[in-house]
Nucleic acid binder design. Structure first.
Lengths: 133, 133
DNA sequence: CGGTATCCATCCAGATACTG
DNA sequence: CAGTATCTGGATGGATACCG
């Protein structure tokens, strides 16, 4: 279904073409499928955002998971990490154009979730009730 | 998990309001965020589809994960499960209107993934290469 | 401030075997 | 055909402590 030889040039630096195994759609989607990625991305699309700001606004996330998710998003070229070597240090994350292309889709998804979350909660209770008894 | 099979599709009945804790958007999204849910949903949106057909078309999925994901989607009212008590048995899954409202968004997501998967693969290799050396 | 490192519990998911 | 049951390794994620 897919080849592994590409020569796209939007990334700086030389990349060994042999190392590139084109991700499947599944792999790509599972990146933003994590528990936290969408929340982080939505914040970072509004503009540069700092580590602690994310820690506060993405509710329930641990320092560890924030770091891990940020690294993965950066790795996929969805976030840029900028370090200002001041004291105290300051790091900002911002969504890339690649991530911004997701915005419409993502907000569509969030909108759908908002419209249906109550009905889904009802369905769950109904389902659990029916199977439990 | 508790089981309650042999039931033909039923989604009615009274629900104890106290049991409903409205899901957060995060919880709702994480349901379709699983590794397999989107693939299954997209199939089931095309019309009723059988268990084995899904097993074949959702590449790489195990029997177990197919069952689990189907149950969860059914639980959230995104799929209806219909059992025809024939011999051999026959079970069909179809997307509900609630799930169908997701179609646009979902295909947007898949489209984005298809457009960017190669570039993302490049980014990953570049990132790994830079950090490794 | 913005992280790492480590330990540890839990959940996820594959392999395999069995069944109405 | 369409599942279920069980076992198990590995990934996931929280808690806590420490650091440049």
């Amino acid at each position: 279904m897919s080849q592994g030889n590409i020569a796209v040039t939007d990334q700086a630096g030389a990349v060994d073409p042999e190392k590139i195994e084109a991700c499947t759609v599944l792999e790509v989607i599972s990146r933003i499928s994590g528990k936290w990625a969408i929340g982080i991305l939505l914040q970072a699309m509004r503009g540069p955002v700092r580590f602690t700001a994310l820690e506060r606004s993405v509710e329930g996330i641990s320092r560890r998971m924030l770091t891990l998710t940020l690294r993965n998003l950066e790795r996929d070229g969805l976030l840029v990490r900028t370090v200002y070597p001041t004291i105290p240090p300051r790091v900002e994350y911002e969504a890339t154009p690649r991530a911004r292309e997701l915005y419409e889709t993502l907000s569509g998804l969030v909108g759908w979730a908002e419209r249906h979350r109550e009905a889904i909660a009802v369905s769950r209770v109904a389902y659990d009730g029916n199977t439990a008894c």
